[in-house]
Amino acid sequence: MEIIAVKELSKSFEYYTKELGVRNSIKNLLFRKTLIKEAVRDISFRIDQGEFVAFLGPNGAGKTTTLKMLSGILHPTSGSVSVMGYNPSERKNEFKRKFAIVMGQKSQLWWDLPAIESILLNKYIYQVEDVAYRKSLDELTELLQVHHVMNVQVRRLSLGERMKLELIASLIHKPQLLFLDEPTIGLDIETQKKVRDFLKYYNEQHKTTIVLTSHYMKDIEDLCSRLILISDGQLIYDGNLKEMNGAMNQTKVIKLKFTERVKLEQLQTYAGIRHAEDYQATLEIPKEQVNAVSRELLARLPIEDILIEDIPVEEMIVSMYQRKRAQ
């Protein structure tokens, strides 16, 4: 079942520049040069219920802006958005009760109070019935293991504990749809893993659709079946992470270790030497030639170890951005 449908979505806004100095301040008072930033350009995609989708892209690519348009915080300049059958920019309360948004850098928790107070406030704001509230709260505290910090003032908690409680406050009304804007930013590796495990479980258990933006490749590899790549406000890839390997990447990497010193000239017959020094070398070989080439290598060189790998996702994505920019 389709839960989000975005068609030819664009968002641009005006901004001003000011150069240094008093004279320019005065000049700005009289005449300001207006510049237009196109944050999102002509994006279309659909997301089905229960999917776990990642928005990936460099800083300022338009990920967060897209997320904000999906949740009704920003109005699109053009194009159409439909989320669970609603137009988000109408900001109907009925609509708002069905989703939640968590922003890694902004908190909805009251700083000087225990988190449980903020969660209770959300119960009334989202009009959650008592029984359902109890049940969600128990389940979430259990899953995230935060019983012991429930009654401690938020300001005394660690960043990781705060993020977990933030998640509880956002999920207490059992949204069908959850937007996460960089949920693991600044967390230590262990907490990142816990948050990821939780999200994965929650997505599978409750069939909650989750859309996430992140910088961390690990977040995306672990969690998301689907990837939407955005660069400069434009959509450059939409599909499965594994398919991206297949579709975008026709080469494999061969890593070699030698038992004795190998000279560069001995390798020169092969195109695509990435890296070579005395006892090791890395080659990039077109997929269909991999078998032939590796057989030949084993025969010709004093090989101790041979590894055949896909190009790492990060590298692939970076090269995709670069290709996009070059266009």
Binding site: K68, S71, G72, I73, R91, N93, E94, F95, K96, R97, F99, A100, I101, M103, K106, S107, Q108, I125, Y126, Q127
Partner: peptide, 13 residues
């Protein structure tokens, strides 16, 4: 200024 309004905007109230 700090964009906290975003989190308030999505509340069903």
């Amino acid at each position: 200024r700090e964009g906290t309004l975003d989190l308030l905007l999505v509340k069903p109230i």
